[in-house]
Design a protein around this nucleic acid. Structure first.
Lengths: 210, 210
DNA sequence: GTCTATACGGTGATAGAC
DNA sequence: GTCTATCACCGTATAGAC
């Protein structure tokens, strides 16, 4: 093996290691925000949960603000990748694609108390933090647009009982309501309970699409 | 005027004055949370905006935590009083009452960017703050229950296209979506745009209730 | 890369005069 | 009730050894 190849290999490993550390810290940050809220999430506590020293945490993320932003980005990309993947594998019929999008919203990777808790925490601060707004906004907008387009397409195929934009708002609204239900609703509420009402609403809006 | 009456009078004035001060501080707190977020809302800034000294702010609320809690309570009671009043003046037909509840959700006193911003901020922290959860929960639950009951009643009169519980979730969901729209949606979105889609959905669910 | 130690500023809360 | 002055603490970020 040449020296050059060895160097590249080592460099890749270092990068891998660095990514691993970052992921470790981001996980700890998510834990903290979930259990303590953003206002009580400190570098010291994040360091404790991640097992690293406080200095090391700062070393990897420069400062607390960027750590929080990257945590939000991570959550965001996870959600984005999830629904884009599911959509890519879905059929061509708008109803199928809409359904895929709905199911993606309830995928275990995103639809769990820990993640949603953190999501809402960032959301609550987003109005006053331009960075959060930008990060959330991009994904949110893309999701909304996709839902809207599918409602328009579906409306073209088999006219629904609501104007496409109203349909889109209703569907997004009930999805959000289920997220909220999981987070704050009855303790018995579980993942499996979320889907049925959304589909019931979808079928009500587009009765001839099944 | 007797001494006793004078004393009562003076006491009443003192209480009035105290209430006025508290209101003043709560308003400043709402401003701060709206513009800076909860994490950047400090006693110093609240004092500055309210025109009082920091010491005086603490004097009236004991400490920062109870100030924030009472700010949330104030918001909550405002919302609660609003929809209860509107409901009391509404007709007997469940659809009218449901409509009243919807309109109450968009009343200027609650449906404005400043208030909703603060509302969401508290909401985001509520999972990790038991006090917030209790305060929000009480109102939220009452509102949800009322919507559910009305949907059940309406369903009895003229069966809707959705199970009552699904209908309730859908309606609450689209209301929340409009709140969110006002806060984060297009800048052009205004109060008057919020009502129509909700009514459209309501009519879709209960087509024979008009 | 990782740690410990520390400087620095900001924050909540108190004391005491008026 | 209201203010100013002050304190003790905590949280972030940096410095420097390894």
């Amino acid at each position: 093996m040449s020296t050059v190849t060895q160097k590249n290999f080592a460099s890749r490993n270092r990068r891998r290691q660095s990514e691993f550390r970052k992921q470790q810290v981001i996980d700890a940050t998510i834990d903290c925000i979930d259990q303590l809220g953003i206002s009580q999430t400190t570098l010291a506590r994040i360091a404790e949960r991640s097992g690293l020293s406080q200095g090391n945490v700062v070393f990897h993320f420069k400062n607390k603000d960027t750590l929080l932003e990257q945590t939000l980005m991570h959550l965001n990309e996870e959600h984005l990748a999830n629904w884009r993947d599911v959509l890519a594998q879905a059929g061509n019929h708008p109803r199928d694609r809409l359904l895929a999008l709905i199911e993606a919203s309830f995928a275990p990777a995103v639809f769990n108390r820990r993640k949603i808790s953190v999501w809402f925490a960032f959301w609550g601060e987003s109005r006053s933090k331009a960075a959060y707004m930008r990060i959330c906004g991009a994904n949110d907008q893309a999701f909304s647009n996709t839902v809207s387009e599918l409602c328009i397409a579906l409306h073209g195929l088999s006219p629904g009982r609501l104007a496409p934009q109203t349909a889109a708002t209703s569907i997004e609204g009930i999805i959000d309501a289920q997220w909220q239900n999981l987070l704050l609703g009855p303790p018995g509420f579980k993942r499996g309970d979320a889907l049925a009402p959304v589909i019931e609403l979808l079928d009500c809006i587009y009765p001839h699409a099944g």
